[in-house]
Design a protein around this nucleic acid. Sequence first.
DNA 1: TGGTCAATCTCGCCCAGTTG
DNA 2: CAACTGGGCGAGATTGACCA
Length: 268
Amino acid sequence: MKKSLPIWETIHLCAKEFDKSGNSPFTRGDIIKCVQSKIPNCKPDSINPIIQGLTDNLRGGAPGAAGKNLLHSVGRGLFVLRTSSSVGAVTGTTPNSRIVPEPLTKLSTNVESKQLDCIALGGIDFRLICQLSVENDESGNIREFRPQLNYAGAGSTPLNNYGNGLFCRFKIPTGLQKSGVYIIGTKSQPLYVGECVNLSARFNAGYGNISPKNCYVGGQETNCRINNLIFTTVSGGKDLFLWFFETQDYKSVEKSLRQSISFPWNRA
DNA sequence: TGGTCAATCTCGCCCAGTTG
DNA sequence: CAACTGGGCGAGATTGACCA
């Protein structure tokens, strides 16, 4: 009986096939399917740590004879062949789909004007959290997303009013699990006021990352609308910032602000 | 016995769906 | 419209099996 190649060699073979056919970057799932087509009884649980062990910019994983010299991660679950010509621009980087927010202290010092650290609206002092830095591609251009194309129910459910746009991705620091009222704006104009129970979650799992479902009727079209506004504003060369006022009474604070101040991105 | 390869497990994030 | 929940998946660490 013919002995099959070791898993790590099969992974390398698959990666070379993807690269040669132009299907690069490829996903972890692509690798697993390819390996299983060559070694049918090989389980994903066996393949995953070996992929990890072959990838130069991922820690851990199962060590192999080839070492971490065969794959390079270009995003969460996305890989390229390390010997591919496409790797040159990204060698040495870390996967970029997980945006690691810069520390708050550093973000604050990046702001041009010291008075941006705090703004007063309606008698309330809002503290600057960070600049809303959207994810860029390898060329430094804003990475565009159309998650609506990935929704399984697209054929039976219409897009919502804001679901057909281009979207961006961004994150804020994850440690801000606080309720309160937030302001999105440029350094000269507040644009949107909103309330939240968990600021980090509201942005990192809401505005900052549009899921396919939210582009369709029944989804959170406000997330789509605000994300698209952020995308178009930042694309236009303007910097956007996030300010926050921590309070348990966020509903009444937001309501009074909306009554006293006109925020162009808030709807009536 | 040490190196290589494979398997198993935990943790955290993403996403879709649901609820208020 | 915002918040919550649970399943699936990827990342990473650890352990076991095999072989020269």
